[in-house]
């Protein structure tokens, strides 16, 4: 993770989706761990960020992921009735339902955002969620539309607005 996120995007043919997964500590993280220890074969495009509960996942995390170059996101937690904190996932469900619909209205393809319930025992389901998310995003291509929102002068010395000639020497 030490390398800077490459916001240039890979060439369409060699495109490897970059996906951020926000998962709850109790169910999905353990499920993902199980997938690993069970040596299930799955796409390696996902960076997992573990949080205590889906109720702790602010929709801004997703926005931030896209800002920083993610092509897709996964949000996953405990099945209804299984929340370690009783109701965190119910609250998250409402929040993400609204967020999902809003993003679609704004023009973000919902296939870039995967929401799932994966329990601690569902290693195979985690694999399926990941593989499907990666396949979806791969089909959609890099999220260039979001990257195009970056300021023109992002990380390069050229001011916005008027074009520039070489520095007077």
């Amino acid at each position: 993770m030490s390398d800077a996120v490459d916001t240039s995007g890979a060439a369409a043919d060699g495109f490897e989706p970059r996906i951020t997964a926000f998962v709850c500590n109790w169910c999905t993280y353990t499920g993902a761990d199980l997938a690993g220890t069970s040596r299930l074969h799955m796409a390696s495009n996902v960076r997992i960020i573990r949080l205590p509960c889906t109720g702790r996942i602010d929709p801004l995390f997703i926005v931030k992921s896209f800002e920083r170059g993610a092509d897709g996101v996964i949000v996953s937690g405990c099945h209804p009735a299984d929340c370690h904190y009783t109701s965190g996932n119910y609250h998250a469900r409402r929040r993400f339902a609204v967020f999902h619909d809003l993003m679609e209205f704004v023009g973000v393809d919902p296939r870039r955002m995967t929401f799932s319930w994966v329990s601690a025992s569902e290693g195979a389901k985690w694999r399926d969620v990941v593989d499907e998310a990666v396949a979806n995003v791969r089909a959609l291509g890099p999220f260039e539309a979001y990257r195009a929102l970056a300021p023109e002068d992002a990380g390069v010395a050229a001011p916005a607005g008027a074009r520039v000639e070489a520095e007077a020497s």
Partner: peptide, 9 residues
């Protein structure tokens, strides 16, 4: 408890 969740896998 029965909120719609068609967008969740």
């Amino acid at each position: 408890l029965d909120d719609k969740q068609e967008f969740i896998k």
